[in-house]
């Protein structure tokens, strides 16, 4: 086929226009909110966003991914972030905070923050840990004779030798566990030398990249005990799997979803309204029902049936061990490298 210059020019213009139009459409849209896949995306699509729209009139776009993907997009966005609000584990949020992408929330625009357990509000409102998924010790009820009651059982109960599952260092669960072990056996959550020495005593252990993989290891029987979040284990129980989860007496860990205001975002008022809605007592209750998180709003009502499955609620929220991640940012790369080399 022979193209005249005019035909070629028209064709190219059409092609460039077709590539540009979606970008223009995006520019006209309002708030973009990030969330995770699976149960989370389902809840956001079916309940949270329709509720937000009817409560505030805001019609956000949903972006499903991982916290690390959101970090990459904010970094790549430079001074025009695709998000005005970031959601991710607090240790990941700390990276962007250190790089200067976030600014404090105006708490006057987030009235529900006053009802949030204070431990989840960062100093100077630089991030609010609005969604909390506690991590306990999960085990196979049919393969474990003595149910665990303490984190120390991982080292002291011979049943668990070589049958333990742990998150690999790329997952927040691993860094949380590292800091817990440093606190339990060493001088505090920053005593990484002690933590590495103690965790090496658990070798060989199965390493998993995310909670679903830990669950798979438990189901296969490759691991019979593992630190995992309640969400994962309750979901397995709902499917009839012989697994249970306990809150060790020293306290529990938690995936804390940190919400942060992105300085380079364009929809800051809508971002405040969105966070306020997330912190709402009823919304927190609904999340607990949908995926067994612990409501961060102290006015959320958790009935006895739900409390039996999500025990870390109300006064027991004090059992959650929260760590300072801002100081960890500088050490994160070195610790990940060390884990790779020593935990093989």
């Amino acid at each position: 086929m022979k193209l005249t210059r005019r035909e070629f020019a028209v064709g190219m213009t059409a092609a460039i226009a077709s590539m540009t139009l979606p970008r223009l459409a995006t520019a006209q849209s309002s708030l973009v909110v990030p969330t995770y896949g699976g149960l989370w995306a389902k809840f956001w699509e079916e309940q949270l966003l329709p509720g937000l729209t009817s409560a505030t009139g805001i019609q956000p776009q949903l972006d499903v991914g991982l916290g690390k993907d959101f970090v990459a997009k904010i970094r790549a966005g430079g001074d025009r972030s695709p998000y005005s609000i970031f959601m991710g584990n607090e240790n990941i949020a700390a990276v962007l905070r250190a790089e200067g992408f976030f600014e404090p929330f105006d708490l006057a625009k987030v009235p529900n923050a006053a009802k949030t357990y204070p431990q989840f509000i960062n100093k100077d409102a630089k991030g609010i840990r609005a969604i909390v998924s506690p991590i306990g010790l999960a085990y196979r009820t049919d393969l474990v004779k003595t149910a665990p009651t303490s984190w120390h059982d991982l080292w002291e109960n011979p049943e668990f030798k070589g049958k333990t599952g742990l998150y690999q260092i790329g997952n927040t669960g691993a860094v949380l566990f590292l800091r817990l072990v440093a606190e339990l056996f060493g001088n505090g959550p920053d005593d990484f030398d002690t933590a590495f020495a103690k965790i090496k005593e658990l070798l060989p252990f199965t390493q998993a990249s995310w909670s679903g993989e830990v669950a798979t290891a438990l189901i296969r029987g490759d691991a019979i005990i593992a630190p995992v979040d309640w969400t994962e284990i309750m979901t397995l129980q709902d499917k009839g799997a012989p697994v249970a989860i306990v809150a060790p007496k020293e306290g529990v860990l938690a995936f804390e979803q940190s919400f942060n205001l992105v300085g380079t975002g364009a929809e800051k008022d809508a971002a405040h309204a969105y966070l306020n809605y997330i912190l709402d007592a009823k919304v927190q209750q609904d999340m607990a029902k949908a995926f067994y998180t612990s409501p961060s709003n102290n006015e959320s009502v958790v009935d006895d049936a739900l409390k039996a499955r999500t025990p870390i609620v109300g006064p027991r929220m004090a059992e959650i061990k929260s760590y300072d991640w801002d100081s960890y940012v500088d050490k994160a790369a070195e610790i990940a490298d060390r884990w790779n080399r020593e935990m093989a």
Binding site: K68, D69, V71, A72, I169, G170, A332, A333, M343
Partner: peptide, 21 residues
Amino acid sequence: GTGGRTMSVLVVQYLVDNFRW
């Protein structure tokens, strides 16, 4: 796992997990 880690896994870990672009 850790015993069969390859370069692409390591690169992704550096870039995505550790943010060491």
